[in-house]
Design a binder for these strands. Structure first.
Lengths: 196, 196
DNA sequence: AAAAGAAATGAATGAATGTTCATGGTTTTT
DNA sequence: AAAAACCATGAACATTCATTCATTTCTTTT
């Protein structure tokens, strides 16, 4: 029973993801989500408080999963550069794996003021990861000392998101994962100490 | 009369910009826009086809103005680096000057599939400007030959947009224009030929 | 200043859709 | 197998708004 509830719950979440990604949150209707999940409209309200709550729980769930993977990816690196490389590769690969999530994060999240705390959380966690990496790089001498970390980390996140955005616009027609290394190279060549 | 129509038209456009920026397109109502412009609801329909059309014309108008300035800024530079510097400074300053526009471009535009052609236009124009600059830099030897222009230009745009996004999230509390030079420096140090 | 034309009004309309709840079905318990 | 507890249904409800248009107000013409 717990499991069957869980199953239906996730079925609805998934359907919601697909419908939100296709039509956008506001144009998506409860009926569309219910139909795609193969349940009646009213059933959604057994599992979710309201339409907003569906999106909220979708984002929470995805955020959790992805962020755990990102943390693991970073922990897997030794020096600052390999951590950065792992983080960005993980980011690109996860978004490529789940295109609905990519669309929702890229297109919708900025739009929703009510869920601002959620956005802030995921962005903040990501930016904090980047801060740590950059600071480590400065300590071990692989990154310039005169970097303004606050700017650099936003710079990196913005660039990665821009690349994802473009990929989404192209309907995911090319491989996103392969952009990780050129992207980091491009970035590192700017950050790396001239002589090292 | 032509002028008074023009005045009211722009009054409505401005009000729409403020209301869209504050509430987002879907939560913004015709009544709010009308009230802010000091006209009756029905009056909007003398100047615009419908709600979508208001946003469309807002974006068209702003796009035109900003893009002319960006073109002029680029034309004002001599070498690739100064052109890039001028472009990015112009971008940041214009968005800072008109925060409503900044919010709408950053938060709303990605969301609106119907206006995709519009977005594509402004993004494409911007990316084309960047392409030209990078190619010129490669020709005159100030930028590396092995750059993948398609990636670099999205990298730059993404980074700039990321910085603007952060500024918008902070409710425009700090000066955006001053970030132009550090941003370009950060970027150039990566792009510039190691020896030059 | 009267008439004609243009511009503006805002209450009424109608469509869209998030949410509820009385009803019916299914599973579990006794 | 009857009763109880639980789950699911989907038609009906209520609200929200974009849009319209009959009426009024303002401007121009003669």
């Amino acid at each position: 029973m717990q499991k069957s509830k869980s199953q239906k719950y996730h079925k609805i979440l998934n359907s919601a993801g697909a419908v939100f990604a296709e039509h956008g949150f506001y144009k998506a209707t409860i009926s569309q989500i219910a139909a795609r999940a193969g349940v009646a409209d009213g059933t959604l309200y057994l599992y979710f408080k309201n339409k907003d709550d569906i999106l909220y729980q979708y984002l929470s769930f995805k955020t959790d999963v992805v962020f755990k993977k990102m943390n693991a990816a970073v922990a897997n690196g030794t020096d600052a550069e390999s951590k950065l490389r792992n983080l960005i590769r993980c980011h690109l690969e996860e978004f490529q794996r789940d295109q609905n999530m990519a669309i929702i994060f890229q297109s919708e999240v900025r739009y929703l003021r009510d869920i601002e705390s959620q956005i802030k959380n995921i962005s903040k966690m990501y930016l904090d990861l980047l801060s740590d990496i950059i600071e480590q790089g400065q300590i071990d001498g692989s990154m310039r000392q005169d970097l303004f970390v606050g700017l650099v980390k936003r710079f990196i996140l913005g660039a990665v998101e821009g690349v994802i955005s473009t990929w989404v616009s192209a309907h995911g027609r090319y491989d996103l994962g392969t952009m990780a290394d050129p992207l980091v190279d491009l970035f590192m060549t700017g950050v790396r100490e001239a002589g090292s």
